[in-house]
């Protein structure tokens, strides 16, 4: 996908506020940010600092009050609802803190879910799902439902679901937040592999310092303002 100034994600002067009982609560104050293609970026900050809100804007599941969010050269804030939904299905892979798998579907079917929106032939869909499940090391648990998997395994299924459409960017909201230390390390290794081996751009929100250490770059948000911290 085309990038602007080498950045696949370009956030320009974005503002976002929430309203509680008609009182405006600013969450993001004039944020600007550029994420180069192939970057692994961690967003850190205390609760309420606006990091998830920024992630939601980049992923196209929320809209800014002001400013632009360009991903791959497209100002996604200007897209209509159905265009935005289509854009997300093609370009974004999501990883949630609580995995958000459908409990009635098997691991295989959960991974296959985003492919329902594509017109790929059945055979190709199968290849995509099997590749993703192999990549996360769960090809032997395809028929298991989420309730039959550990938290770490469920998150790996969620990662397989995030990559099955070969998205442009992967956004992860606290991917290790609900996991034990070992499972968290496995998940971070997997994300790292996706970034290094498959050159996926990853934007991750985390509270976990160890998780953030796997990222190339860590940005701190505090009260809606961005404080950069660059690590080599």
């Amino acid at each position: 996908m085309a990038s602007m100034n080498g950045a696949i994600i370009q956030v320009n002067n974005v503002k976002k506020s929430y309203y509680r009982a008609s009182i405006e609560i600013p969450v993001l104050r004039n944020i600007s940010l550029a994420v180069p293609d192939g970057e692994f970026l961690a967003l850190m900050g205390p609760s309420g600092s606006g990091k998830t809100t920024l992630l939601n804007l980049v992923a196209g599941i929320d809209r800014p009050d002001a400013g632009e969010v360009n991903v791959g050269g497209i100002n996604i804030a200007a897209l209509g609802e159905s265009e935005l939904a289509q854009w997300r299905s093609r370009h974004v892979g999501f990883i949630f803190q609580f995995y958000n798998l459908l409990p009635v579907l098997t691991a295989y079917e959960n991974v296959e879910l985003p492919l329902l929106l594509t017109k790929l032939p059945k055979k190709e869909k199968k290849e995509h799902v099997e590749f993703a499940m192999n990549l996360v090391g769960l090809s032997d648990r395809k028929e298991n439902r989420p309730s039959q998997l550990s938290g770490g395994q469920q998150q790996r299924v969620a990662i397989a679901r995030a990559i099955v459409t070969d998205p442009t960017i992967i956004v992860a909201d606290e991917p290790t937040g609900d996991l034990d230390k070992i499972s968290a390390a496995e998940v971070m290794m997997l994300l790292n592999r996706l970034n290094t081996e498959f050159k996926k751009t990853i934007v991750m929100v985390t509270h976990d310092q160890r998780a953030a250490e796997k990222a190339h770059k860590v940005l701190h948000l505090d009260k809606g303002d961005l404080e950069p911290e660059v690590r080599s």
């Binding site: 599941i61 289509q86 299905s89 999501f94 679901r161």
Partner: peptide, 14 residues
């Protein structure tokens, strides 16, 4: 779950 499906790109029609 429906929010997650919308996130993945499932439309209102879906």
């Amino acid at each position: 779950e429906y929010a997650m499906l919308k996130t993945l790109g499932f439309s209102g029609q879906n």
